[in-house]
Computed example of a mutant assay.
Amino acid sequence: MNLHFTKNTNTATFLSRQVANSIPFSSNKVADTFNRFSVKPGSMEADIIQSTIEECEKTGIKGEEKYCATSLESMVDFSTSKLGKDVQVISTEVGKETQMQKYTIVPGVKKVGSDKSVVCHKQNYVYAVFYCHATETTQAYMVPLEGADGTKAKAVAVCHTNTSEWNPKHLAFQVLKVKPGTVPVCHFLPEDHVVWASK
Rank of each mutant, 00 (worst) to 15 (best):
Y127W: 12
V39T: 12
K58L: 11
K85V: 09
G63S: 01
S26P: 03
S43A: 12
T52G: 11
M44A: 15
I48Y: 11
K62S: 09
Q99E: 13
G42S: 07
V30W: 00
A69H: 03
P24Y: 02
Y67H: 14
I48K: 14
M44I: 10
S117V: 06
G63C: 06
A46Q: 06
N35H: 08
I48E: 10
N21V: 00
S81F: 01
A31Y: 06
F25P: 10
F78E: 01
C120Q: 00
V106G: 09
S38N: 15
L72V: 03
N124W: 01
D77P: 00
V89A: 09
G108Y: 12
S51V: 00
K116Q: 11
D77M: 02
C56R: 10
F37T: 01
M100R: 08
F25K: 07
D47R: 14
C68P: 04
S71G: 11
H121S: 10
S27Q: 07
I61T: 06
S117M: 08
V126H: 09
E93N: 04
Y67N: 13
D47V: 07
S74R: 04
K96H: 12
Y103L: 12
C56P: 13
V19T: 14
S26I: 00
G60L: 05
I105F: 05
P107D: 14
S79K: 01
T33A: 14
K40H: 10
R36V: 10
S38K: 15
D115H: 06
F37N: 03
K66R: 13
V106M: 10
G108R: 11
V39I: 15
K58G: 03
K110G: 11
N35V: 06
S79M: 05
A128E: 13
V126A: 06
S38L: 14
T59H: 07
K40A: 15
V106E: 13
K96Q: 14
T33Y: 11
N21L: 13
E73K: 10
V119N: 10
S79N: 05
S38P: 05
G84K: 01
L83A: 07
K85T: 13
V87G: 02
S114I: 03
E93W: 00
S71Q: 08
S81R: 04
N35Q: 14
S74P: 01
G63A: 01
N28V: 00
T92C: 09
T98Y: 02
E54F: 07
D86N: 14
K122S: 09
S79W: 01
E97P: 01
C68V: 05
S81A: 06
F37V: 04
V76E: 15
C68D: 09
I61L: 14
S27K: 04
R17Y: 10
F78V: 02
